[in-house]
Nucleic acid binder design. Structure first.
Lengths: 208, 208
DNA sequence: CCTCCCATCCTCCGAAAGGACGACTCCCGG
DNA sequence: CCGGGAGTCGTCCTTTCGGAGGATGGGAGG
């Protein structure tokens, strides 16, 4: 019997997963969690084989799904974590994989794919949705972009529509420095304008 | 007995809703639909009281959830449509209400709120999630922004990071015309720069 | 018919943005 | 201890953007 913990803040999704698993003879839902903290507790005390983890939790939470994944994977006798989420943003996928997730599924996946993934995860294998797998490979090919925290800070201001002057005032630096940061950002993202930088950063998941 | 049709492309969500409704003595799920078209068929032939409609369907669909809502509401003896979706974007809410939805719920709503909304809808009343209701009021206060289709087209290009020259070439118009459209956009959105326009448009749900 | 809105085009001009140098600290890792 | 990256600032210059202001034609609607 595969012991599964469901961690998702949507009651509807929890009910759905439970209903789908109730049909499967070899899978048992041993706990439900509506917050990352509850997920962690359940992972510690219910001795599950697999934790199904949503990445997006309500805005009230201090821990994210990725954070909870990391903590769970650091436990003794840690269960495998299968990330189940709505989006296929590059940043999310990378973050989940780095946090130690065994798989990454989208919520619109057909049920049988979900079952396969749970069984694979329980066996210690990795299961990525096909969409995700190819995206991960694409991402591997693209050289990893490393913006400094200050650069991201500036880029966020740009994304909010502020001018260099406004950004300078807001960050207590000179306009020259803002331009300097932007020049570095442009070069790293291989673009020529602020709007293009925002667009690329959004696509890459650097900006939300 | 309240007859309900569930229209959502996520098998997990359909299973969840069905499971939740199975507990309620006065609500019966008479059909499930994975596409807008299926939803329309079910609305016509199953004689439901309420259709629970997701707004986001897979990219392969020709009709949107809002479109299906409009069509369903135009039927003889039309059922009430309750929109149940993930996001609370202004554009989505407005679109759903204009299409004739009786209510707008978020998928992370607690089950009892969902049940209340279904019963209210079946009785011909409106049920909006509190979050949505206040947002709708905010939106009413803000003067409605009406960008022409051409202006939106230009704005999309701007959001993709293209320069005026590139946009002009792409749309087969002169750069002057692009600037003219942008000037109108700026004035309508009450901003002073292209990046600010994109930012505001995104917040208002004009751009995704 | 006349008016409003949309889409298209124009010029002139100032402001913002971006490129290309250089230069100074601070701090981290080899 | 030294190199290099990050962050800060500067100047000079070019290009792009946006503002002002106007013009044309076409379609929708009072």
């Amino acid at each position: 019997m595969i012991r599964v913990v469901i961690a998702d803040d949507h009651p509807i999704v929890r009910a759905g997963l439970k209903a789908l698993f109730s049909i499967e003879p070899d899978i048992e839902v041993v706990a439900e969690a509506a917050t990352p903290q509850e997920a962690l507790d359940a992972a510690e005390h219910e001795n599950p084989d697999v934790v199904l983890m949503d990445l997006q939790f309500g805005s009230g939470e201090t821990t994210t799904g990725a954070g909870a994944t990391r903590t769970i994977r650091a436990l003794d006798a840690a269960p495998y974590v299968l990330v189940l989420t709505n989006y296929d943003s590059d940043a999310d996928i990378l973050g989940a994989v780095e946090a130690g997730a065994s798989g990454y599924l989208l919520k619109d996946a057909p049920p049988h794919e979900l079952m396969n993934a749970v069984r694979a995860a329980a066996a210690g294998e990795s299961a990525l949705a096909p969409v995700i797998a190819s995206r991960l490979l694409d991402r591997m090919r693209e050289p990893r972009v490393n913006l400094s925290s200050r650069e991201i800070e500036v880029l966020e201001q740009v994304g909010a529509g502020r001018t260099n002057q406004e950004i300078a005032a807001g960050l207590f630096i000179s306009e020259t420095t803002v331009k300097s940061h932007l020049a570095h950002i442009f070069s790293k993202l291989d673009v020529a304008s602020r709007t293009a930088a925002v667009s690329v950063a959004r696509r890459k998941g650097i900006l939300r």
